[in-house]
């Protein structure tokens, strides 16, 4: 897994890529979410478009980002959720928990 962050219209975009299979990289992800809260970024988009696949570790990361941000009064959207990730969200019955958008811009606009 690779992780990059950027800012757009006062929204923090977390871009994930590669295969998310669990391991030390999870720490980096949790740190990024904490940074978003620390920097008072009220709105976060996780861009999944370049993720090759994720296993349950990746789903665990998304759920924990959702709860951590929600508890801090922040809002999370997913963007470019791949078919594979969407099917995992359906299997795990999390599809109705996340607000997914087909583009990053669409996700950003949906905050308003």
């Amino acid at each position: 897994m690779k992780l990059k962050t950027r800012e757009q219209s006062d929204v923090m975009i977390v871009e994930l890529s590669g295969k998310i299979m669990g391991g030390p990289e999870s720490v980096q992800f949790h740190d990024t979410i904490k940074q978003a809260i620390g920097a008072n970024r009220k709105r976060v988009v996780i861009d999944l478009g370049e993720v090759e696949w994720m296993n349950s570790s990746g789903i665990g990361l998304l759920v924990s980002a959702y709860t951590t941000l929600k508890n801090a009064g922040c809002d999370l959207k997913l963007a470019r959720t791949t078919d594979k990730i969407q099917s995992l969200l359906v299997i795990t019955k999390l599809n109705s928990v996340f607000d997914s958008h087909s583009s990053v811009d669409g996700a950003i606009q949906s905050f308003n």
């Binding site: 789903i59 990361l61 759920v63 924990s64 709860t67 299997i91 928990v97």
Partner: peptide, 18 residues
């Protein structure tokens, strides 16, 4: 069952189901 309401927001427990 990781899809039960009390476990839905756990950060683990979904591997075998998948």
């Amino acid at each position: 069952d990781p899809t039960s309401p009390e476990r839905l927001f756990d950060d683990h427990g979904r591997g075998i189901l998948i």
